[in-house]
């Protein structure tokens, strides 16, 4: 079943996924690389994509589904246009990331792991962004923010929105 709302799956979609598999020489050991590329190109790894990948790599549906569901980076439905990740690990907790988490939930109107109804924002918890001397650390669409607070995250959301 197609999990992408409002989007008709067509042969071109499958071709795009198949093309990614071919770029990785259809190697089963490159499955995670393939899933990363599919997630990046299509915003998620939908159930239909799992079938295409399984066929291209000569794996079972269960194997591909199992890998997709193991790794936190893969989602079955598209994420928001702006993905806000906040580090919830110890080093960032020591400088107030829990309070910042509450502010972000209220500000974006979503729980961690959820996407806002308008498809604009996704809020995610991550465990370490490797910026532990300048915490709290956050990441907005791949842009790292040190000494993060609501204002700095807001500014980055606006900035990536204008990109």
């Amino acid at each position: 079943m197609d999990t992408q709302p409002g989007r008709q799956r067509c042969a071109a979609d499958a071709d795009e996924v198949r093309g990614i598999c071919v770029r990785h020489d259809r190697r089963a050991d490159a499955l995670i690389e393939i899933l990363i590329d599919v997630q990046h190109a299509r915003g998620c790894v939908a159930d239909a994509d799992v079938g295409v990948i399984a066929e291209a790599l000569n794996l079972s549906l269960a194997e591909v589904h199992g890998v997709r569901s193991f790794y936190a980076d893969f989602s079955t439905t598209p994420k928001g246009r702006c993905v806000v990740k906040l580090c919830r690990a110890e080093a960032c907790q020591s400088v107030g990331s829990d309070a910042l988490a509450e502010q972000l939930r209220a500000r974006l109107g979503v729980e961690f792991g959820q996407t806002s109804r308008d498809g604009m924002h996704t809020l995610e918890a991550v465990y370490c962004l490797g910026n532990c001397a300048l915490g709290p650390a956050a990441m907005v669409n791949g842009r790292l923010i040190g000494r993060a607070d609501s204002e700095r995250i807001d500014a980055m959301i606006t900035e990536v929105g204008n990109d």
Partner: peptide, 20 residues
Amino acid sequence: AGAYICGEESSMLESLEGRR
């Protein structure tokens, strides 16, 4: 792809082979 456990060496090897 966002799994802390893959820092464990045998889990990393599984991941490098394309598995959970």
